[in-house]
Design a protein around this nucleic acid. Structure first.
Lengths: 217, 217
DNA sequence: ACGTATATTCCGGAATATGGAATCCACCAT
DNA sequence: ATGGTGGATTCCATATTCCGGAATATACGT
């Protein structure tokens, strides 16, 4: 029976419960449907998670993500050397380009925003820390899939969102593995339909700077 | 055999691993010491959590909090009606008082910051969303312990941090239970050593407004 | 090349999670 | 009040799953 993905069944189920509940608060019946677990099992695990603050009950009694996850998320970004290093370099990148700058890491078949600084313009792209975006769409995602051009950067225009363009570059570790993607994004009006040549070099420089500052050498 | 606190042993252990790792990245040996688990058990559970992105390995191979926790933390604050309502009311409170404004909820024997807006002053208190503070110290924490004065607010001076004072009020649900604490905080120089009378009414008003907007009636 | 410290895997035994069925509860309509 | 319905919650025997001592592998320093 190799139906367990992590080697520990209970943890697979708990993770399934958390991501089911992450989409929207769910009553027990909804949780059962979303996870495929038996009703007593879903209930037992959800209440167990509730004991540890990973899940809470909303005013209607439905299961929702708990306060402990806020604390852990905060601690997670604090403990990430990459995020510390990035916040400095992203500041420079934003000031230099005048556009919003973000850092993404891969998480399974998606990407998570590790750090984000917003442009001062009224019209700007907004991505929150912790936000999830697809891997295949947008320059940041495709950089994480190792699709990089010969100049070390990759540009995309209206792939993920209408009217938005972006330029990203990989942050690589000593072994050459892509560990993150830095990028700037903004409206086509300012970035134009071919933003690569104009923003690429600055983005690549920021990526190198982040890798150095984070000690990936 | 009542050694299990949530009813599901594996979840207790996984939660212990997460909070151990939240303090600082740990090698397996450190994880064993911090949790009291057997080495193989700690390893198996940690790698299982790693499969789901709740834990990652830092460049030195130690266990640290994973990217999925950022995503879940973000989703958690999104799904919190209280946080939505608070961000509006906190803005008003900050503009009205000129000081930093925060919302806390209780999480076990601590409190977690659900939302935070910072004062425009150069000298100001800074608390991040997701940050953890003690329950017993500071007006916000003590409000969560139901210690409220007759006027509906509570002030504290230099309890938690030197030079800082704060005034907080409880957000109560329909049943009268305290579900959160709103407050303003800032340096004694501006708040004085008796900030209650000056800020209390505005804080109480914000608390009521949050309760209403969040649908707690 | 050797020794040490650490991480990782193995595997039999035993505690633990499982889920069908029964129970309880809140709410609504009669 | 009373019966009925849709949910959540608890029970419990069973088998599955997890546990952890011991063996092994790996990385690192000398």
């Amino acid at each position: 029976m190799e139906s367990t993905i992590s080697g520990v069944g209970v943890i697979d189920k708990a993770a399934a419960i958390l991501s089911a509940v992450a989409d929207e608060p769910l009553a027990l019946a909804g949780l059962v449907e979303a996870t495929g677990l038996a009703r007593p099992t879903a209930h037992r695990l959800a209440t167990a998670l509730e004991c540890h603050g990973l899940i809470r009950r909303d005013p209607d009694g439905r299961f929702a993500l708990g306060a402990q996850l806020l604390a852990l998320g905060h601690a997670a970004s604090r403990s990430w050397p990459l995020a510390e290093a990035a916040n400095f370099a992203l500041g420079g990148l934003r000031d230099q380009t005048g556009e919003s700058a973000q850092l993404y890491v891969r998480q399974g078949d998606r990407r998570v925003c590790l750090a984000s600084l917003e442009s001062g313009h009224g019209l700007r792209t907004i991505v929150d820390t912790g936000e999830i975006l697809p891997l295949g769409l947008g320059s940041g995602g495709r950089v994480l899939l190792e699709e990089v051009g010969p100049d070390g950067w990759l540009a995309s225009v209206e792939e993920r969102q209408q009217g938005v363009a972006s330029v990203s570059a990989p942050v690589v570790d000593a072994a050459g593995r892509v560990v993150a993607a830095v990028g700037v994004s903004g409206p086509i009006q300012r970035l134009t339909r071919d933003p690569g040549p104009r923003f690429g070099p600055a983005v690549v420089a920021a990526a190198v700077s982040i890798a150095t500052d984070a000690g990936l050498t």
